[in-house]
Simulated scan of single mutants.
Amino acid sequence: MDAAQWDERYRASAGGVWATQPPAVVREIVTPLPSGTAIDVATGDGRTALWLAERGWACTGLDFSSAGLALAAARPGGDAVEWVQADVHEWEPDAPVDLVVSCYLHLPDSAAAIARIAQWVTPGGTLVVVGHDVENIAAGGHGPSDPAILYTPEVLRGALDDRFRIARCERIVRTSADAELREGHPAAAVDSLLHAVRVR
């Protein structure tokens, strides 16, 4: 889907497309970290960026959908986040940040996109990427059905160079209790997770 299609989807939604909280695994990884600067890539209607801001992070929410960003900015706490409408292939932060989070960014060049956003992490900082795994198709979980844009742990691991230490890179199962959509979905889903720390 391009930006115009996402704009249409957000405008048709009743207050937002995505769940109000970030994925449980993102909360699990980020909660112990000291707050600092962060970028939420493909922020959509803002759930992860707002959650970070509530916890003291100076957060930028990046997305190419103006309608999604408008929903995000209108949510409680929306004025605490810097919302940026831009393409992940073109935008650059002013300086590296302590945390880069990407939830469900699916592109034809996903590995290259992950490699690019990884460069936004400062030495000592953290990268967290979660997205639909290719095995999610057979599992019947919600999400894209095109294997070309889906993740595997191997794809995520291969996106990083030796400046990163990989803490976790694996498939995880997300239950309906951790639904991606605002209205929920009944089936479990298979995701790929990458948690890495930049060491130099």
Score class of each variant (00 low, 15 high):
4 A>D: 13
72 A>W: 01
194 L>G: 02
171 R>E: 11
8 E>C: 12
97 V>Y: 05
76 P>F: 04
187 A>F: 04
5 Q>S: 14
88 V>L: 05
93 P>K: 10
72 A>G: 06
164 F>A: 15
139 A>H: 04
32 P>D: 12
86 A>H: 12
166 I>M: 13
148 A>Y: 03
76 P>D: 09
22 P>K: 06
61 G>L: 01
119 Q>C: 13
158 G>H: 11
95 A>S: 12
89 H>D: 09
156 L>M: 11
59 C>T: 04
124 G>V: 00
140 G>K: 13
91 W>T: 09
63 D>Y: 07
87 D>W: 14
132 H>D: 06
78 G>V: 02
105 L>M: 03
12 A>K: 06
8 E>S: 13
83 W>T: 07
33 L>D: 01
91 W>D: 09
63 D>G: 06
52 L>V: 01
1 M>K: 06
138 A>V: 06
76 P>S: 09
17 V>F: 00
51 W>M: 02
134 V>D: 00
102 S>W: 10
29 I>V: 13
180 E>Y: 11
123 P>Q: 11
90 E>V: 15
11 R>F: 10
51 W>G: 06
66 S>V: 12
72 A>Y: 00
53 A>Y: 00
34 P>C: 12
110 S>L: 07
60 T>E: 12
87 D>T: 08
2 D>W: 06
115 A>S: 15
67 A>I: 03
56 G>R: 08
112 A>Y: 03
62 L>F: 05
78 G>Q: 07
121 V>G: 05
97 V>K: 07
125 G>L: 09
95 A>D: 05
83 W>N: 10
196 A>K: 09
86 A>V: 08
1 M>P: 08
143 G>Y: 13
120 W>R: 02
21 Q>N: 10
189 A>R: 04
20 T>I: 14
136 N>G: 09
124 G>R: 00
53 A>C: 12
127 L>V: 01
84 V>C: 14
95 A>R: 14
159 A>Y: 05
89 H>P: 09
57 W>Q: 04
1 M>A: 15
42 A>I: 01
75 R>T: 14
64 F>S: 07
88 V>S: 09
48 T>F: 05
5 Q>G: 15
12 A>L: 14
60 T>F: 02
176 S>M: 08
173 V>E: 11
90 E>N: 10
144 P>W: 08
90 E>P: 10
187 A>E: 10
165 R>G: 10
77 G>Q: 02
84 V>A: 07
44 G>Q: 03
111 A>W: 04
172 I>Y: 07
1 M>I: 00
179 A>H: 07
113 A>S: 05
133 D>F: 00
91 W>F: 15
183 E>A: 15
48 T>M: 11
31 T>D: 01
102 S>C: 15
47 R>M: 01
12 A>P: 07
60 T>Q: 10
65 S>A: 04
154 E>C: 09
17 V>P: 02
142 H>N: 15
53 A>Q: 02
164 F>P: 08
69 L>N: 06
57 W>N: 08
108 P>Q: 15
66 S>A: 12
174 R>Y: 08
95 A>F: 02
